[in-house]
Design a protein around this nucleic acid. Sequence first.
DNA 1: GATGAATGAGTATTCATTCAT
DNA 2: CATGAATGAATACTCATTCAT
Lengths: 200, 200, 200, 200
Amino acid sequence: MGRKSLVAVRRLEILEHFYHLIIEEGLEGASTVKLSRRMGIRSSLLMHYFPTKEDMIQALIVWLMELYENRFLPMLEEKQSPEARFETVIDALFSPAWENLADGRVFYSCYTLIFRDEGVRARFQQTFARFHEHLCHEITRAADAGLIKVSDPSQSAHILISWVEGFNFYQRILADQESFEAQGKIFRRLVENLFREGVH
Amino acid sequence: MGRKSLVAVRRLEILEHFYHLIIEEGLEGASTVKLSRRMGIRSSLLMHYFPTKEDMIQALIVWLMELYENRFLPMLEEKQSPEARFETVIDALFSPAWENLADGRVFYSCYTLIFRDEGVRARFQQTFARFHEHLCHEITRAADAGLIKVSDPSQSAHILISWVEGFNFYQRILADQESFEAQGKIFRRLVENLFREGVH
Amino acid sequence: MGRKSLVAVRRLEILEHFYHLIIEEGLEGASTVKLSRRMGIRSSLLMHYFPTKEDMIQALIVWLMELYENRFLPMLEEKQSPEARFETVIDALFSPAWENLADGRVFYSCYTLIFRDEGVRARFQQTFARFHEHLCHEITRAADAGLIKVSDPSQSAHILISWVEGFNFYQRILADQESFEAQGKIFRRLVENLFREGVH
Amino acid sequence: MGRKSLVAVRRLEILEHFYHLIIEEGLEGASTVKLSRRMGIRSSLLMHYFPTKEDMIQALIVWLMELYENRFLPMLEEKQSPEARFETVIDALFSPAWENLADGRVFYSCYTLIFRDEGVRARFQQTFARFHEHLCHEITRAADAGLIKVSDPSQSAHILISWVEGFNFYQRILADQESFEAQGKIFRRLVENLFREGVH
DNA sequence: GATGAATGAGTATTCATTCAT
DNA sequence: CATGAATGAATACTCATTCAT
């Protein structure tokens, strides 16, 4: 109701530039000075929107986590049948689209902050809790429909998250787009089989 | 003639301090000045052993990868029977000892460099290739002994690596030592079962 | 809106201090830190006005060449008669006022840069081209008035410049103010005679 | 008698490298560290031969002045007749060989030191005094032989030095090898004519 | 809402030099 | 004769931030 605050728009614009700067220079190379130069403004104006750099990083993580969350949820909206939904979920999880490489650069940089910043860790936990919750829900629904065999849906969701993150982490080291896709299919099938037969 | 070279000793000493500094301050906060102060020497002496900070980071990664490699191999030396060996392997992979938390802070910081530095990526690839090779060997041996069912040992090794790394990655977000150990046992058992029955 | 720009004023102020610092410490001893201390400001403020030291040196040379040019031209403004003008010119050229000793320290330091920096050389060439042009004009005018005999005014101007610069260069080695003035008179008279009789 | 001190040989070798380093980087860029790297030795060994950098610069200037002197004198040895000698002298003075461009880079850098270092000035004065002395001698001899008209040989020698140095100084700004040679011939002829007719 | 001056601490790196071996 | 460790000060430059306009 009413038009969107100009401040909010500006802050988002800054975060987007910050995001791309981190892709290019890493978190350690992304300074406010470089950011302001890239945006063609003064760094003092930057501080007008984010009083400290710390604030900016925190805002980035919040935004990034929202991005991460919003990328997964819409994938489930369309399909209605349980079969289609579960297929869609695991298809999405092991597709290159799930996380493109550029994203990873920022994601892992922010990830390293969980070790020194409890707030960052809490935000990551929140995001993964939501991720877990959604998977739980989908797994339960699929199990109810008799599509998969699951004894502990919550535990299965944890396992699935680990597998997905491990898959992405490892594939990024290999950095071969072809292998990424091929392995994605293999992992996807493997996961499907295990869930169908029951992950004991 | 000439003075005895301390290069080997000193460089290692510097890397160890650098390693702990990164744990405390992150890669972005680990400056040469802080490092020299922590060591009680002049930063110019640091440059005597590592001409540039870049050289130091590269050396750190080499050292870190060696550490990573050397932590796994010795775990297999003692045991002789195939049963004991395979048990030892998966025990090791999902134990908190496999990677303690302190290690992770440096490990993931260095990991982010693979996106901007091909040399770093190559070093990570090499390490994981060795890791993969060893797992392949153990899996084949265990399969030959009839302990597990495996159709493609190489692929199974890739899967195992992904699972291990994903497990560590996800557990570090939760950051609960208790959950880490409990989940470690669960994952370990799961992996064991899947390998015994055959990962299809 | 925004704060009033001090760029023009501040840059000039900095160049003047830089100029005097070079007199005292030479180009090789004139650091940005010393300069900022001398001005009672932070060196970071210096970089606000000149992004790099190189920029500062380039600006200094431009300023110095303008100084050099502006010192000569006004000497001709007042006098009207051709006789007076030509007298004034050669009077000026061989007077200690033409280049005082302090000036020389900076001038020759900058001169050495022409060997490694094409931009600096171009700026020197431009200044001397203007110098040459003015001398040409004066020589032609004096020749037209029958005061001097000249076959090639352009060549005569080149010769005159060489003589002036050589005179200054050599006298600075001797560094004797008395000799400088005495020799100045001798050279001045010599040049006058040669031009009156015709430099063949 | 006895073989040449190895120290002297080494010192000379160092000076030669220092000389070329100054050509490439200027006096302000020629550090002992760069010099030692260029020579493939430790900078501490450099200090063994020249206790301080200041000593090295002083030695360079002595060596440079000797070079400067030794380049002129041998030109007179061969010819016997007064005509040939005077021709040779002014030929030499305005030839590009007299000072090639590389030389100039170091020469003017050292020249700037005369403003801050009395020792350097004294050494320059000594060299030019010798230069003056030789020219005096040649001028007197040529005058005695009736080749030229000169009232004050000493003064004429001073004038000649100024002209030569001014010629070189100015031509180096233009930096055109062709113009250098062409102008050299013009200046040479001019000087010859003036001396023949008498520099009043 | 935005500019630009100014700060103060910090960055990696270089410098000339000393000294033990 | 030469190496290599070590020093201590200095270098140009960047950083996040504050404040006046």
